[in-house]
Structure formats: C-alpha cells, structure tokens
Design a protein around this nucleic acid. Structure first.
Length: 604
DNA sequence: ACCCTCCGGGG
DNA sequence: GCGTACGGAGGGT
C-alpha cells in the first residue's frame, strides 16, 4: 500500500468552490486504519410495542372559533378503532378525553394534526371548559427538510402530557423532500395511493357531503357514513405511519437525548451533529461555510433502446466512506465511521433476518438505511459544527470515478450505456448477467453491485437526464421524471406512450396506430374526456377568462374559435399536436430520418 | 429568453 | 437544515 497516498492532497479550493482532481484518485486504495468499536447508547423496545393512538377529527368547518367538532376517531396499534360522535360537543369531548386518559398512548399520530386537529381540539375544549393534556408551543420552528412549494414549513409543535405527537403530514413532506416521488399532492388520500399502500380509491366525503351526512342526526345513515369515512382516514394515516415512523423510533438508539417527536421533525444534519457532539464533550468546532462541489455523475443517451439492464452500486456513498476512510476531519477519532460500520453490519444482519418477513425487523432495517445514507449529506450541510465540505466533495468524486470505471467495463464488454445517475447504470447488452459478473470481478473490494432490473425497452428523450420510460417483461410500463406532467390532456400524455409501445412491435404498427388516431380525431368523434383539461384560471390568462373569472376551476379544450367547453373541438389543432409529437419521437428514435420528416411536416 | 403567477394541508 | 440543485410548471410578452 502506498503510504504517501492522501486524497486530501487532490482537493483545490477557489472562492466557494471545491474541485477534486478526480483522475488522481485511486479507487483501488483501501483505508486500513483500525476502526473504533462502537455500540448503541441504550436499548429500546421495538416500534410495534409502542401504544399508539392515531387521531383524526371531522368538523363542521375549518375555523375552530365558529365551527364545532362533529366526530373524533381514534385507532390503536392493532387497528382497533373508536369513534366518538355526539350531538352535544361537550359530551363528545369529555368522552374522548377520558378515552385518552384511560388508554394513555405512548405516541399520538395525526395527519396535519399540528396545524389542524390538535389546535381545533384544544380550542373546542377551552370553549367548553374541558381540561386536556395538550399544549401548543410558544415558539415556532422551521423544518427545512419538509417543504411546500420549495419553502420550508414553519410549525408550532404540540406537546402532549405523558405522550408524544408525530405528525404524519410532516413525515410525508420530509420523506418526499428526499425521494421526490409524490408529484402534485401531499394529501392523505393521494399519498396513500402513490406510496402504493392502498390499491384502490376509497370512500371520500367532500365538506358539503359531511355537513349533509351530519344533518341526518344520531343513528342516521349519514352518521354511519361519516364514521366510515373517518375510519378510512385513520387507516390511511396508520398505513403511512407504519412505513415512515419506525425509522425515527430506531434512531433513538443512535441519537442522544431525542425522543420520537423530536426525531420526527429534526433533520438528519442536526441528528449527526448531536451524535458527534456527545462524543467530544467541550469541543465545539466551527462549521465549514457552504461550498459548491460537483455531485453525482449524470449521463443520458436519447433514443429507444432494447434489452436493457440496470446495475446499481449498493449504498455507494456509505461504501466509499468506509472503504476510503472518509469522515469529517473534525471527527479526529473517526467516530462517524465507527458508527457507520456498526450500522452497516447491523443492517446486513437484519436484512438476512428480514427475509423471514418479520415486519419489525424490516422496519428496523429501513431505519438503519436512513441513518446510513444520511451521514454523507451531513458532511455537506452548512451550519453544523462537525461538517466537512471537503469530505463531501471527496465522496462524490470517488463516486464519479467508480461509475466511470463501470461504464468503461460495460462498454468494453460490448454494452451500450444508456442512462447513468450517481450510483446506477442502465445499459443495453444481450447478456446482462455476463456483464454483471464481469463488473463484480473487476470492481475494487468493498464496492458491491446489484442487478436491479431487466426490461424489454427504454425510451430516453433528448436532454432526458433522469427522464425515461421503461417497458417491463410483464407488459407493465413505468415512467420517470417529466412524463408525469399535470395540466395536460389525456391524449397529449398518452399518445407518446402508445405510439412508442406500438413502435416496439414494428414501425408499421406504430404508423397504423397513428393513422387510425388521426382518422378518429378528424371525424370529430374523438371523446372529449381525452382532450379536456381541468384547472384553475390564473391571473391574466386571457384565453381562459372567456369561460369564467380568475380563480374559477374550469374544464376546457381547444375549439374552432379558441378555448371552449361546449363547442366542437378543433380537429386541426389536435391533429397538429399529435403530428408534432410523432415528429419529435421519430427524430429521437430515428435521427437519420428526422430531416426528411421536417420537410414533410412543414408541408402538412 | 425572461418575467409573472400560481400551487397546500386539515373540514 | 442530508448533498450535487434553496421549486417548478405554464402562460404571457
């Protein structure tokens, strides 16, 4: 081993930029420093052993001054529920509070309870003169890793005597801040579907419907309906909670002096800071100032590719940190790495156990994954004392080198790289398993790979980094990135998918589909549901103001004389639209033909 | 190409 | 306050 090798020598800083001389990094280097042994600070009971109360209320309106509580629903960890519903609000509240005291849950779980349910209950208790165990924090707190419209949310925490509150809405925002998989909505009903936790739509009541149902009175079918609706909401909240909250629970093994409520709203940067602080009593390093550095490698090759496989590096950044010994330079005893090593080993153990299907084990494993993946981000987080921007820059630099190395191996084996992003490569090759073995044999020890998916075909648009369509063996189609657009007609969204799916059979069949579609559109018989768009009229949208006022929600499509909601649709508009789409698609998948097509279309 | 506007969650 | 990347799409001018 070359004793003189020190990757920190390959870092240069200028202004607020860090540049790593990637080509000088040796990806076959292994750090051989003996790591410290690290053990968790305490033992905790499994998440499943916590007494839960999932809580949701139905009210006559949104403002607690003027409106009242109609019903309160509670569900425990076993899924058993209790619904309190009374004509007399005071009686209802008393029943609920006494149920609460009797069951004394360890944790109360709500969906947006911080903003809505709990303040509403508090206010209605106050009006009815009923004592309760809830307090609203006097201080507001920003959660930077839970954002709406790109802005961090501000909350006033709710404290509960002898219990804790976890707001699943905030957990969802935090989860999506990282995963970015929930587009357009963070509502309970949508989230549960998009996370794949519920298969089908369920009973949903609008506000007027709730009022209508309520007016039926005690024992009515309306009341029964409200109960049913409330129970669905409780179930949905529990489904999401069971996915997201266990991670936070198990973090208390690692993070000192934080309870579940704090863990559920505190970002990972602060958590790692607490961990390291507790290791260095009295030492308060100054945080590195924010620096820019290059991230993961992203490459894409547009076109329609067949016989695709994806190979991922398992836990790329954590593996890099362990293999090359990268930790914060302020963490001189390298405790971060010791913990990382402990977590990685534990996770491996749990992963083996988890194959038996034990939910508790799976939850614990998922939480370890969270922590493992968050250590890298901590290095690059500004404002936390133990951060180290250079360490973060080194990690991504090694990552790019490893990915480039892999692409090289794939190409030498005759494969074609199609899309690469940070730790995974889509490539086309008739024998992906052979390529996989090839890679396994040539990658450095400690860098492990997985063969993730094998798909029939993949479409990557121009400038298509992180956007693609996959055709799976079983006929399923999945899309990623910009394919999930809103405010587009079904025709516009579906046409490229359908055309390409046909094209995979043959160009003839794609063209046949296109011709048939143009015939139906030209005939004027194409269903309007496929063409219309429903959305709110924005300020200054002249074309839509013919249909209503700013702020109105309207359904419309293109008519012969502009936007309409009643006249016949403009077939030339929609024919032009799909002609353009087809042109665009063909120019990507048959670039050699695109010039000819351009001529055709300008005539058309 | 750039500027403006808008979107959410709970009932 | 996990990073690269402090939101992003769509329409008007």
């Amino acid at each position: 081993m070359d004793a003189a090798y020190n990757h920190r020598n390959f870092i240069t800083k200028s202004g607020n930029k860090i540049v790593v001389q990637e080509n000088k990094l040796d990806i076959f280097y292994t750090d051989d420093a003996e790591p410290l042994k690290w053990q968790p600070i305490r033992t905790i009971k499994p998440y499943n052993a916590l007494k839960q109360m999932i809580l949701d209320i139905e009210t006559s309106g949104l403002i607690s001054e003027n409106e009242r509580i109609l019903a309160i629903g509670c569900m425990n960890e076993l899924g058993e529920y209790f619904v309190f519903m009374e004509e007399n609000e005071s009686k209802l509240l008393l029943q609920f509070i006494s149920h609460f005291q009797r069951t004394s849950p360890d944790v109360v779980l709500t969906y947006n309870g911080t903003e809505f349910d709990l303040p509403f209950i508090i206010h209605r208790c106050k009006i009815n003169g009923i004592p309760h165990p809830f307090t609203i924090s006097s201080k507001s707190r920003t959660i930077r890793t839970a954002q709406v419209f790109g802005k961090p949310i501000e909350i006033r925490e709710i404290f509960i005597r002898n219990s804790q509150h976890v707001d699943i809405y905030i957990c969802v925002l935090r989860w999506d801040f990282v995963s970015k998989s929930l587009f357009n909505s963070h509502s309970l009903k949508k989230v549960v579907l998009q996370m794949g936790l519920r298969e089908h739509e369920r009973l949903v009541l609008s506000h007027p419907e709730i009022q209508q149902c309520w007016s039926g009175g005690s024992g009515s079918r309306g009341w029964q309906k409200i109960r049913e609706y409330l129970i669905y909401d409780l179930e949905d909240t529990k489904l999401i909670a069971d996915k997201l909250v266990p991670s936070y629970h198990y973090e208390s093994l690692i993070v000192p002096r934080m309870n579940l409520q704090q863990l559920s709203i505190t970002g990972n940067g602060t958590k790692w800071q607490r961990v390291l602080e507790s290791q260095y009593p009295g030492y308060e390093p100054t945080a590195d100032r924010k620096m820019k550095f290059e991230g993961g490698l992203v490459i894409s090759v547009s076109g329609l590719h067949r016989s695709i496989a994806k190979i991922d590096v398992s836990s790329l950044y954590p593996s890099i940190m362990l293999k090359y010994g990268i930790c914060s330079r302020k963490d001189t005893r390298r405790v971060g790495l010791s913990i990382l090593e402990y977590l990685t080993k534990e996770r491996l153990k749990l992963k083996q156990l988890g194959k038996a299907g034990d939910m508790g084990v799976k939850q614990a494993e998922a939480s370890l994954k969270e922590l493992i993946n968050s250590l890298f981000g901590f290095y690059g987080t500004s404002g936390v004392g133990f951060n180290d921007m250079e360490a973060a820059a080194l990690v991504t630099a090694y990552g790019r080198r490893i990915l480039r190395f892999m692409i090289d191996v794939i190409e030498k084996a005759g494969g074609v790289q199609v899309e690469s992003d940070t730790d995974g490569i889509f490539f086309s090759h008739p024998k992906p398993l052979m390529v996989f073995e090839n890679l396994q044999n040539s990658l450095p020890n400690g860098i492990n790979i997985e063969l993730e998916v094998l798909v029939k075909a993949m479409f990557v648009p121009t400038r298509g980094a992180k956007n693609y369509i996959l055709w799976h063996e079983d006929g399923k189609i999945t899309t990623k990135g910009s394919w999930r657009k809103r405010d587009r007609s079904r025709l516009e969204k579906q046409f490229p998918l359908n055309y390409l799916t046909q094209y995979l059979e043959s160009k003839v069949s794609a063209e046949k589909y296109y011709q048939e579609l143009t015939k139906i559109i030209a005939s004027g018989e194409f269903p309007l549901e496929e063409l219309q768009i429903t959305r709110k009229i924005r300020k200054g949208e002249k074309t839509l103001l013919a249909l209503g006022n700013t702020g109105d929600i309207v359904t419309f499509y293109q008519g012969l004389q502009g936007i309409t909601n009643s006249a016949p649709y403009s077939s030339s508009y929609y024919l032009g639209m799909i002609a353009n789409k087809r042109d665009e698609i063909l120019s990507i998948i048959e670039p050699q033909l695109s010039s000819k097509l351009g001529v055709q279309l300008s005539i058309f």
